[in-house]
């Protein structure tokens, strides 16, 4: 009988000690925020275009963390989907066409002669990449523009075009050579 009591007492003591330890660790090593959201957000292209149906990349990252599909980001395209799939260990789905198609990088261009200086595009720009003031001509800071399209819609005189980024010798890239043919044996089998 004494043995049983001792065992119960020892186990109780152990439970208390470890409980206290866990409780302390939970307070001491508390993780601020949700790190997975930041990791997802770091993979998104940060165009803040809202094509995914969320009001920016961070909200979409939060939604993905809560189980939203990972294939709703057209600017990120296949690369982003693949990276998200690797991070979250889920299957890489093809891009959801409903939210748009993958396009080459674009930048907004304001036809300055037609601009009436209404500042509507400035208010729409999620990254403050449009420079101008009321009744003054506006212009786009090309290096800051994410090509999100959000300024095109509000323009009352339709003077904003989305143009592809110009290719120069400095951003030109070599093409991958075409994939080699199958080995002769495989060709014979095919």
């Amino acid at each position: 009988m004494g043995m049983v009591l001792t065992a119960v007492a020892v186990l109780l003591l152990l439970a208390l000690v470890f409980g206290a330890l866990l409780g302390y660790a939970a307070v001491r090593f508390r993780v601020e925020g949700d790190p997975i959201v930041d990791q997802i957000n770091a993979l998104l292209p940060q165009t803040q275009c809202g094509q995914c149906g969320f009001p920016g990349c961070k909200p979409y990252a939060e939604a993905i963390a809560n189980g939203e599909a990972i294939n709703k980001c057209p600017p990120g395209g296949e690369t982003t989907i693949q990276a998200l799939a690797d991070l979250l260990d889920v299957e890489a789905l093809p891009l959801d066409g409903e939210h748009g198609e993958e396009k080459p990088p674009m930048v907004a261009y304001i036809r300055e002669a037609e601009c009436i200086g209404c500042t509507k595009c400035i208010q729409a720009c999620p990254v403050d990449a449009i420079l101008g003031a009321a009744k003054q001509m506006h212009t786009v800071i090309v290096d800051e523009c994410t090509g999100c399209d959000l300024c095109v819609e509000p323009c009352p005189v339709d003077c904003i075009d989305m143009v592809p980024l110009p290719v120069t010798t400095r951003n030109w890239r070599w093409d991958m050579p075409p994939a080699p043919p199958l080995a002769a044996a495989e060709r014979g089998a095919a």
């Binding site: 292209p45 940060q46 990349c57 800051e144 994410t146 890239r173 070599w174």
Partner: peptide, 26 residues
């Protein structure tokens, strides 16, 4: 081609980071 791709991806990341900062500041 591989070097070009990697450089382009790095550039995209830098730009995404810059855009994120600007968006948050806005």
């Amino acid at each position: 081609a591989g070097k070009g791709e990697i450089r382009a991806i790095e550039q995209q990341h830098t730009k995404a980071e810059q855009s994120r900062v600007r968006y948050e500041q806005r």
